[in-house]
């Protein structure tokens, strides 16, 4: 079993993927550890009695606590770039160059046979950083997985600063002050991007079929997949055969998608309104809709994955021109 994993992991082009996983986990834990530490410090500072002069701003006190250990708190806030920063950059550059050298000498960049359009390798894989998108091809048609989702990812990332109206947590690690933003980011980045790359590398074998790590990549494996569309699935459970018609499928698909986004927008709105959370007024209608759209689109990916794996559902909406 380990032999098979080792064969895949030790491919020269897959070493960066293993490295990426280690680095992302390390820095992920580091950032959360720092965030929780800062939150503890701020909670402790909040119950501390105010300084007697009453002039010092509470926030400023907390922030110094967070950034510097007590021994450094009296030092000047600014330091000269030369030599303090330049020195660090230099050391860092040497370390990276050394790593690169030691990586480049023993491990050769892969070079396979000359390209041959008549000889398709199985599986044919995109470059490793796009494997998440390629894996989405299992669950979505190419125009969604290959065009729409990348566009949404780019636009979605770019709008983050304009839809995140929470003024807290600007410039320091914290979790308690922005849990929704951080959890959403890690769901998108780690679960949907990094883990999908790992699955695409280690678990997708011939025919892009799923193999558990260590399972032999048998090119002759046949898996009988009986995927059905959403309306057929509903027809099967309810027993209403008219749902199987094309028109019913079209209508049902449109209704399902509209209901999904409609409820996705409405329920959090009502819930926040009921608690009279100030975030609703801070966001305003346009920002709220943008947040809702991108958030529920991202969630739709995982929902579609679950629907496919658990109930073999192929399409939610079937039209003569495109399917979702």
């Amino acid at each position: 079993m380990w032999h098979n994993i080792w064969i895949i992991a030790s491919k020269p082009d897959n070493i960066p993927i293993v490295g990426m996983l280690v680095l992302v986990l390390f820095f992920g834990f580091l950032s959360f550890w720092l965030a929780f530490k800062n939150d503890r410090i701020r909670r402790a500072a909040a119950v501390r009695p105010k300084p007697e002069s009453g002039k010092a701003k509470r926030d400023a006190v907390d922030v110094i606590d967070i950034m510097y250990p007590e021994s450094e708190q009296g030092l000047p806030k600014k330091v000269s770039c030369w030599p303090h920063l330049v020195k660090l950059e230099f050391i860092c550059a040497i370390a990276v160059m050394a790593l690169l050298m030691f990586w480049s000498i023993p491990i050769d960049a892969p070079l396979e046979e000359p390209s041959d359009p008549t000889l398709t390798p199985n599986p044919s894989k995109a470059p490793w950083y796009f494997l998440g998108l390629q894996d989405m091809l299992v669950y979505f048609d190419p125009w969604i997985a290959g065009v729409l989702l990348p566009t949404f990812i780019i636009v979605g990332l770019m709008v983050i600063p304009y839809i995140d109206v929470n003024p807290k947590g600007n410039g320091y690690y914290t979790f308690a002050e922005r849990p929704f933003a951080i959890l959403t980011y890690w769901f998108g980045f780690f679960v949907l991007w990094v883990l999908e790359i790992v699955i695409g590398t280690f678990c997708r074998g011939p025919g892009w079929m799923f193999f558990w790590p260590g399972q032999e990549w048998d090119p002759h494996r046949v898996v009988a997949e009986v995927n059905i569309n959403w309306n057929e699935f509903l027809a099967n459970i309810t027993g209403v055969t008219t749902l199987k018609t094309e028109t019913a499928g079209l209508l049902l698909g449109i209704i399902t998608i509209l209901t999904y986004f409609g409820l996705g927008m409405l329920i959090p709105y009502l819930w926040l309104k009921k608690r009279s959370a100030p975030i609703i007024d801070q966001l305003g209608l346009i920002r709220y809709s943008v947040v809702g759209f991108f958030f529920w689109t991202m969630m739709a990916l995982s929902i579609k994955i679950v629907l496919r794996l658990a109930f073999s559902i192929k399409y939610i909406l079937v039209t003569p021109w495109f399917n979702i």
Partner: peptide
Amino acid sequence: DQLGFWAVTVGTNMARA
């Protein structure tokens, strides 16, 4: 080589859609 050729073929096939 085969690696690059097919990776780019897979990638650019998306543009068809």
